[in-house]
């Protein structure tokens, strides 16, 4: 077999290996595309366990406020993780789910205390002490006639927004 230089004379023999052998390139491409499609398949598979509709029960509820609500004394509807306050500005609801790790904080006249890791909050939800990274969120609330209060635990409003009532 003779080794003639290629036409064009770039000095490379026909028998010298190409810079990237075509076979290797195609092989790598095949391997890469296999892995890429498997990765896409995995991403597609993970769509199934990632629930699109949350199966938890509705978080909207109505409750009749007690007649005499002292300013600064929380009213916690039984079985709900919400504390309702009434002061001169109006009525507002603060979530009692701790922003640290989801325990239910205990509401009292001074504010909130978390039983799990000792976070403490003021009545307006701001953190005073402990590991909680965020203030307790205020929840959407509407007061209708006869001091019936409708609260959506799933809907957060900006802190400080009170409802007339």
């Amino acid at each position: 077999m003779t080794t003639r230089p290629l036409a064009g004379g770039n000095g490379r023999s026909r028998l010298d290996p190409e810079p990237i052998p075509r076979r290797d390139f195609l092989g790598r491409l095949a391997v890469f595309s296999s892995f890429a499609s498997l990765a896409f398949a995995l991403a597609g598979i993970m769509r199934l366990p990632k629930a699109a509709v949350l199966p938890s029960p509705s978080k909207k509820f109505s409750v009749k406020l007690p007649e005499a609500m002292q300013p600064g004394v929380p009213f916690v509807p039984p079985g709900r993780s919400v504390a309702i306050f009434r002061d001169e500005g109006g009525v507002y609801a603060v979530s009692t789910v701790c922003t640290h790790l989801g325990c239910i904080v205990k509401a009292d006249a001074g504010g909130f205390k978390c039983p799990c890791h000792g976070s403490e909050f003021r009545r307006d939800g701001t953190v005073v002490r402990g590991p909680a990274p965020k203030p307790l969120p205020w929840l959407a609330l509407a007061v209708s006639a006869g001091s019936v209060c409708t609260i959506d635990e799933g809907s957060v409003v900006e802190s400080g927004r009170r409802a007339r009532g």
Binding site: M46, P49, K50, A51, L54, P55, S56, G102
Partner: peptide
């Protein structure tokens, strides 16, 4: 995303137990 994948919901419930 991690919590949703683990619990199948936003709180511990029947979906979480099955998972």
């Amino acid at each position: 995303i991690q919590k949703l994948l683990l619990l199948g919901s936003d709180q511990v419930g029947e979906e979480s137990l099955i998972r």
